[in-house]
Amino acid sequence: MSPVLPTPRPSEEPAPATAPTLAATVAAVSDPALADVPPVERQLARDMVRHGLVVTPVLLAVCGAVWGWAGVSSCAYGLVLVFANFLLAAGMLGWAARYGSSVLLATALGGFLVRMLLLVLAIAVVKDQSWIEMAPLGATILVTYLGLLFWETRYVSASLAFPGLKPRTKGA
């Protein structure tokens, strides 16, 4: 009679490898250590607004030279909208990041819709006013938004690639 190889009982079988569950992922992201991350979104938004304030006189002068006083006021209005959009987005995401991943996702998507709605309302309210020209307003919004983003992306990329060149804050 040939010997029979012992087979493991069901209770002794090793647990099969499974993908992490949604609850485990949420728990990992909701780790209190993540709340200690500095509010990088606010730093980025403040940086972009500071850069935007530097180029504001140039933009106002260009719009004024091409479209007159209506161009200046439209350009100023567009700049305010862009700065407010950046600061609002940063504030919302920074606030949501403290409460975990689900709140962050909901705030990112909901905040996008709310901000776009506010932007459309802000433009729709003033578009028939005599001191608004749509061409400089649209051009200012698009140029400023993309320009500041590329500027900040370049700065962030350089900071990540060459951490030693990153400017230090006072007292650090």
Partner: peptide, 20 residues
């Protein structure tokens, strides 16, 4: 989070293009 914020902002630029 830094990269995410910039990615969101770049993606939003498409919506801004459409609206404007």
């Amino acid at each position: 989070r830094t990269t995410m914020f910039l990615g969101i902002a770049f993606t939003e630029a498409l919506a801004l293009f459409g609206f404007v």
